[in-house]
């Protein structure tokens, strides 16, 4: 770890001003906000993150979960993962989010981890986390060690020749299925970005993971009002029963009417370079009855573009099963 300056932001404006001094908000940022610290400090100890300045944002008044006027939910960036998971409104209207949060990390980590921090957690690719190894995401142009290496956990969707790392978050998958919006206070003012546009695929710039600019502070995440009569589930498949990142996971929000799927939103984790919305699968299912036939069609559609690596070919089949089973659960077919 390098020596760094530490300060505490007293206001959103102060935080934004401090952040704006960094040449980038992506890999290599010289100013970093710290919320729960469970991603940042870990990476600083590994010399993967080397900020010169760390700005503590924990005092900012962004720690509430509130109803919005349109019946949706407004989640402060500093709401702890455990508080969000156990929030009554979340449990009642957005069960998928609660389940996703509780399936992640450990109780201790969830008590520290925040909504904003979770959105921005970094990949678990072992080469990214080891400065002795080549990694384009950590050091642009150095190469991708994961291709042809230890990639069992990594992505099969949205990959590039430069990077195949997964976005490891569970929460982000649920937020994607819920069509969340990320609210950002930047040096040039406020803006809001749909979660689908917030994350970017690696392409030739894997160091760039989202649309954040220097100074950008995530203030809130909003969720639209729950679709009437919808049911949602999060299914996470992994080697051991707890405390492990997903090999494949699925968040499904579904409304069944008259034996048919009226509306469905599906996002998957553990398979994509960002939380992966399964639009093709949704199309294949909407308006149809849920049965083995339609489920298979949807699963095929979802994984059509999959590009397996040397060790993760199993994810194609696993993801299909994950998707099918989660849809069954959400439509109460099981």
């Amino acid at each position: 770890m390098d020596l760094f300056q530490f300060s505490r932001a007293e206001s959103v404006a102060q935080a934004v001003a401090a952040g704006a001094e960094s040449p980038t908000a992506q890999q290599g940022a010289q100013v970093r906000f710290v919320a729960g610290g469970t991603t940042l400090l870990d990476l600083m100890k590994l010399n993967v993150e080397r900020p010169q300045r760390v700005v503590d944002i924990n005092k900012l008044p962004l720690d509430k979960v509130e109803r919005t006027a349109d019946g949706g939910l407004k989640i402060g960036a500093l709401v702890r993962n455990s508080d969000l998971a156990h929030n009554e409104m979340v449990q009642k209207d957005y069960a998928v989010l609660s389940q996703a949060l509780l399936s992640g990390a450990s109780a201790q980590l969830r008590n520290m981890a925040t909504t904003g921090g979770n959105l921005l957690q970094r990949t678990r690719c072992v080469y990214f986390r080891d400065t002795a190894m080549a990694c384009n995401k950590r050091e642009a142009g150095s190469g991708c060690s994961a291709i042809g290496g230890f990639n069992r956990m990594l992505a099969i969707l949205g990959t590039s020749e430069q990077c195949i790392a997964t976005n490891p978050s569970d929460m982000n998958v649920a937020l994607t299925a819920l069509e969340a919006t990320i609210h950002i206070q930047g040096a040039k003012g406020e803006r809001s970005v749909p979660i689908h546009d917030f994350f970017v695929v690696p392409g030739s710039t894997p160091q760039q993971e989202n649309v954040l600019e220097p100074g950008d502070l995530i203030t809130y995440v909003t969720l639209p009002a729950p679709a009437a009569g919808s049911k949602s589930v999060y299914l996470k498949l992994r080697d051991r029963a707890s405390y492990e990142f997903a090999l494949a996971s699925a968040a499904v929000v579904a409304t069944v009417e008259g034996g048919r799927l009226k509306r469905v939103r599906i996002a998957m984790g553990g398979v994509g370079t960002k939380p992966w919305r399964m639009v093709e699968a949704e199309k294949a299912l909407e308006g149809h009855a849920v049965n083995e036939g339609t489920l298979h069609k949807a699963a095929e559609a979802a994984l059509r573009g999959a590009k397996p690596q040397s060790e993760n070919g199993y994810k194609v089949e696993l993801a299909k099963r994950c998707l099918m089973y989660a849809v069954k659960q959400a439509t109460q077919a099981v």
């Binding site: 072992v126 986390r129 051991r240 707890s242 492990e244």
Partner: peptide, 17 residues
């Protein structure tokens, strides 16, 4: 290199297992 040299990538049984 022993490449999964950490407790997230070298998984041992937890109580839940």
């Amino acid at each position: 290199a022993p490449i999964n040299s950490n407790l997230a990538d070298y998984v041992v049984a937890t109580h839940a297992d």
